[in-house]
Write a protein that binds this DNA or RNA. Structure first.
Lengths: 144, 144
DNA sequence: GCCGCCGGTCGGTGTCATCCACGCCGGGTT
DNA sequence: AACCCGGCGTGGATGACACCGACCGGCGGC
């Protein structure tokens, strides 16, 4: 993982459709060498996958909220139950006053309420504190 | 935006390296027709971009935290100042007891502290409440 | 019923991903 | 110092694929 790899990662994060030739030119390498480095980055798991990034609003997910979930028991193993709610985009075990923090994206606030109801249905959940997002200033990839 | 488009989006979200031929076969369309639909989805902005997803841990970003930022003035226009902290991955204006919620990824907790210090340097910021992530259960794309 | 349009299939072409053989360079060994 | 060896890069070949244009069928509006 040298500096060239980091530059490749940065380029691929903003646009993974670039050809290896263009990519190589940007970092001063041949297309073949570039291909080889990217292949290794994939193999090592540094690049998890290459995916299309979809605009949530365009697929009817206009409501975003972060929900702190309080629980009376350990919830580190409830990943599957949380994943069963398809509107939950991320779930993290956190330190602090809550047990779990989830990021929820729904079409409407009514649907958000349904998700909160779903959360209460999970064993051990004793409360939720939702923070509704009014406007997203920016979202960007990690800077390597 | 019909059901075929939604299926294409789902497929491209899990792996955008698939060929149009394979993609078309999965939804029962020719490669050319698939190409055309994807082109339109891009043009309309439904697909924002296609990007490589990098494992944060592999690039030395092992610490994740969500920080609620309290402020004494309106912060909806402070996007640029927040974006100047490169460790901030997302920034949202929120309803509730705080003004802004940011997602921060750093190498160490010391660097997290530096980011918090940076936040206090922004005009109007009067406090921060950080919630540190212990374990990420899952992160997944929006379900169209 | 006719016309125009949207969305599809089919076929061709230039580009690109991908593989292979070879060469360069630096570190460790004798 | 000379040698060897492994990793990394280059150049070229080839087969697949993205991309484009021509054509066609169904559907809705006049």
């Amino acid at each position: 993982m040298d500096d060239t790899d980091r530059r490749l990662l940065a380029l691929l994060q903003e646009d993974a459709t670039r050809s290896y030739a263009a990519l190589g030119q940007a970092v001063g390498l041949s297309a073949a060498a570039t291909h080889e480095r990217v292949r290794k980055l994939r193999e090592q798991g540094v690049i998890r996958r290459t995916a299309a990034e979809v605009d949530p609003a365009a697929v009817g997910k206009g409501v975003l909220a972060f929900v702190l979930v309080d629980a009376t028991s350990w919830m580190g193993d409830s990943g599957a139950e949380l994943a069963a709610l398809p509107e939950i985009e991320e779930a993290h075990v956190v330190a602090g006053s809550a047990s779990v923090l989830v990021k929820v994206r729904t079409s409407t606030t009514e649907r958000l309420q349904d998700v909160l109801r779903g959360l209460y249905g999970i064993d051990g959940v004793s409360g939720t504190r939702a923070t509704v997002v009014l406007d997203t200033l920016f979202e960007r990839p990690v800077t390597p």
